[in-house]
Amino acid sequence: MNNLIASPTARPVTPLGILTKKLEAVVQEVNQRQDLPADLVAEINQAWELAAGIDPYLEECTTQESAALTSLAKTTAQEAWDEHFTAGAIVRPLEQEMLSGHIEGQTLKMFVHMTQAQKVLEIGMFTGYSALAMAEALPQDGVLVACEVDPYAAKVAQKAFQQSPHGAKIRVELGAALATLEKLAAAGETFDLVFIDADKKEYTAYFQMLLDTCLLAPHGFICVDNTLLQGEVYLPAQKRSVNGQAIAEFNHTVALDPRVEQVLLPLRDGLTIIRRV
C-alpha cells in the first residue's frame, strides 16, 4: 500500500510516509520560530527534504505502470470503501491504502520476470493491482491464482481484469485464505512465486502451510508485504497494534526457520523475500 493518486482520504501508511509527515509538521513549526539557530533550522529542513523526496524520485525513475493499472489505481482511490464493508468477512474495513501501488507493483512484476515464474499465488488480492501487475509479466500460458475474502473487492478486481489483455491469466478464489490454501494443496497445485498481503494475524499460518505442503515449488520464492508495518515492528513493543505484534512475531519466526533464507527490504511498508534452502 500506497503510491496512490491523490485523494482527500489518503494517509501515510509506510514508515517513510509517516516520518515525512511528522517532519513536515516539525518544519512548519521551526520555520515560524525566531529563537532557533539558523543552522539548526537548516538541518531540520534538509532532513525533511531528504525524506520527502525519496518516493517521488522512485516514481520518476521506475518504469511507468500500464494504462490498465493506472485505471485500477484511480478506481480504487475514488471508491467509497466505507460503504462496502462486509461485516464479518474481513478483520477491518477496506480502504484505498491497501492498494500495492506503482513501485511495489513494478517490483513484483520484475520478480516474475526474474524468476521466470509460470504459476503465481497471491494471498490477499484486494482490487487486483498487484495481481494484474504480476500477470503482465507471466507468459501467455501462465496462471495467477488470487485469493480474496471480500466479494466487493473481488468484483472491482474482476472488472479491471476484463479490461486488460492479461486478465485472462488470473483466477480468483473467493473465500477465507487458509481454506483456499487447503483446497489448493489438496488439489496438488504448486506455485513458483507466492505473494502474501492478507490478514496479518495469519501470516505465520500462511508461511507454515506453504512450506509444509506442495504449494511452494522446491525452488520457489515467497514475497511478503507489510513486514515493517508502519515501523511498529522495531518500535517499543508497547506501542504495537495487534497487527504490529503479529508481524513482529512473523518476522521472528521466519528469521529462525532453518528451511529458508530471507531478506527484508525497506520498500514501502516492508517487503520480505523468502526462498527455500
Results as ranks from 00 to 15, higher is better:
Lys183Gly: 05
Thr9Asp: 13
Leu108Trp: 11
Asp39Met: 11
Leu36Pro: 10
Glu189Ser: 12
Arg240Gly: 06
Leu229Trp: 15
Gly142Lys: 04
Asn243Val: 07
Leu271Thr: 06
His84Ile: 05
Asp150Leu: 12
Leu72Arg: 02
Thr76Val: 08
Val145Gly: 00
His166Glu: 14
Thr204Gly: 02
Gln96His: 07
Val233Asp: 01
Leu132His: 06
Ile90Cys: 01
His84Ser: 03
Thr204His: 04
Val172Thr: 14
Asp192Asn: 14
Gly53Asn: 07
Leu72Ala: 04
Glu59Tyr: 07
Arg92Ile: 12
Leu178Tyr: 11
Ile44Gln: 06
Gln238Gly: 02
Ser100Asn: 08
Val13Asn: 07
Gly17Lys: 04
Ala217Asn: 12
Arg171Pro: 02
Leu58Asp: 05
Ala73His: 02
Thr115Gly: 00
Phe111Lys: 02
Met209Ser: 05
Leu178Asn: 05
Gln64Glu: 13
Gly88Ile: 09
Ala89Lys: 12
Ser66Gly: 04
Asp269Met: 03
Ala77Gln: 01
Ser164Tyr: 08
Glu59His: 09
Val194Tyr: 06
Ile123Trp: 06
Val30Asn: 04
Pro8Thr: 14
Lys119Glu: 07
Gln230Leu: 08
Lys21Leu: 11
Glu95Asn: 06
Ala87Arg: 10
Lys21Tyr: 11
Met125Lys: 03
Gly231Phe: 08
His166Val: 10
Arg33Asp: 09
Thr180Ile: 13
Leu138Gly: 02
Ile274Arg: 04
Gln64Ser: 06
Gln230Phe: 10
Pro258Ser: 11
Phe221Thr: 15
Leu228Thr: 05
Phe191Gly: 00
Leu265Cys: 13
Ile54Ser: 03
Ala153Ile: 03
Ile247Lys: 02
Ala246Arg: 05
Leu184Ile: 13
Asp192Pro: 05
Gly124Tyr: 10
Glu189Val: 12
Gln118Pro: 01
Ile196Trp: 09
Ile103Lys: 00
Leu94Ala: 14
Gln64Gly: 12
Asn31Tyr: 10
Pro165Ala: 09
Leu72Trp: 05
Gln262Tyr: 14
Tyr234Ser: 11
Val26Leu: 15
Ser71Trp: 05
Asp82Met: 03
Leu36Tyr: 15
Gly175Ile: 10
Ala177Leu: 03
Thr190Leu: 04
Val233His: 02
Ile273Asn: 01
Ala154Ser: 14
Ile170Cys: 00
Lys159Met: 02
Ser164Leu: 06
Glu173Arg: 15
Lys169Leu: 06
Glu79His: 13
Glu136Ser: 01
Glu122Trp: 11
Arg33Ile: 12
Tyr129Trp: 09
Ile196Asn: 00
Met134Ala: 09
Thr204Tyr: 03
Thr272Ala: 06
Val172Met: 03
Leu144Glu: 01
